[in-house]
Design a protein around this nucleic acid. Structure first.
Lengths: 248, 248
DNA sequence: CGGAGAGTTGACTAGGCTCAATGTCCGTGG
DNA sequence: CCACGGACATTGAGCCTAGTCAACTCTCCG
């Protein structure tokens, strides 16, 4: 498979699939050239750990393709996922020496990494990167706060419905609204990963998915493929206001 | 009382108590002068609502003194606090028209407000504000993610202990480590507000506080004043690693 | 003294967790 | 080709933590 090549052929930033959404979105041509000099690609297989919390981290990166997760773990093993990283999302914090969370590839993953030192220098000299990073960080903060409401106040059923709605929505936006008939997508997470994201146990996740299936809100094909006959019905199960989330 | 004066006497930024921590921390003298032209103070009484979620918001602001909260409310009334705003914290999002959360003063509150339009213009022309705001936003994101772990995975007792530890730590840092004997502080939140912050009911909050008191972890004097005879004991109840949080 | 708001405590309930057995899918090797 | 093993998932039974509903206390203040 392709990921056995550790050093991907360095693509031209102009052709990059995340060019217009990533941290480099606002950069001019000359700034991109400078970024190209400090960038390198890294690939990970599904399941591989990218960084362990507490590890020294000498780069920051953008997710180019695939999905990664940020998780926190307590001493006794309790785990909470605190972020889901999709293509164009940013990994790492300028000014921080050490990773604050475990970063794991849940699918095969390609990241565009920048050596931290030159990246930080560039950040302070050209405003375009910092501006875009601020915007992205504010979006992440909003997402984290929405997740706080889910974790603190939603029922198990509402949590599952919310997660499915988020994945469905994201999938639909990638497919450019080609969802004519039923909305359908693959779950990028195992039941256990969903549990870690939602603050539940994997058994409860499984039970609630079965319940939503029994009630006709979703249809399952295999364990991972989900069809949504009526998206509004799913939205009603999330507990959110009927109009919520469309402004973002 | 002083807060009946709606327009506080405009202080000189140089004397401002949050000068070195707020969004203006990095600004030079000339930049401060520019900020002074667009700033005005507003005061709120304890319990007053500063902004309702969904309201048009034509300013951004820094908390000068007092404590405010950010909360989200579901249609059926379930509430989750998603942020606690302390002096120097920033309110509002550049580029957003409308408030995303309810902002409420839990104590008497003074805010230093900037008209949004000129503030945004200044942000794009001078990098110091955006730099500082990025730093503050990244800190808030970390705090939100720590809170996600609490909401998703901690027990009621651990949640209470964590909140008390956070308040105690903040209080100690304000008092400049004058905590010779016992650590002691006042709770700035009612039981219900604590419940909304921790994803619990107020009854559970009350019970767990009583339990911590019975077990000698804390001592109560009245309803709001708390003494901590042994801070390490309290930390053990939080569920966090023994060394956690000191790097921040 | 009465009333309102905040807090405490008790009795009971229920939603989600734990532990355990069973089921499904898929790749590997005999 | 099929049997086996392992990873992932489902389902059941029982328990326990935190929620619900309700009574009561405390304190402040008019």
């Amino acid at each position: 498979m392709a990921h056995h090549d550790p050093q991907m052929s360095a693509h031209d930033c102009g052709d990059c699939p995340i060019r217009h959404r990533a941290v480099c979105a606002r950069c001019e041509t000359d700034e991109l050239l400078r970024l190209e000099q400090m960038k390198y690609y890294r690939s990970y297989q599904a399941g591989q750990t990218v960084i362990w919390s507490g590890d020294r981290m000498d780069f920051v990166a953008s997710v180019v393709s695939g999905i990664a997760t940020l998780t926190q773990t307590m001493e006794d093993g309790r785990r909470q996922m605190v972020g889901l990283l999709l293509p164009s999302d940013f990994v790492g914090r300028p000014g921080r020496q050490v990773a604050a969370y475990d970063v794991t590839a849940t699918t095969d993953l390609v990241m565009c990494c920048f050596r931290k030192k030159p990246f930080e220098e560039m950040m302070s000299s050209t405003p375009h990167i910092a501006q875009r990073l601020l915007e992205m960080t504010l979006d992440e903060l909003d997402a984290a706060r929405e997740w706080m409401l889910l974790l603190g106040r939603k029922t198990a059923r509402e949590k599952i419905a919310s997660l499915l709605a988020i994945i469905a929505r994201r999938d639909a936006s990638l497919k450019l609204r080609s969802a004519k008939g039923k909305l359908a997508f693959d779950l990028p997470l195992t039941r256990e990963e969903m549990a870690d994201y939602l603050g539940l146990t994997l058994e409860t996740v499984s039970r609630q998915i079965s319940a939503l299936k029994k009630d006709g809100v979703i249809e399952l094909e295999g364990k991972r493929h989900i069809q949504v006959p009526n998206f509004d019905l799913l939205l009603e199960e999330t507990g959110d206001d009927s109009d919520g989330g469309f402004l973002v």
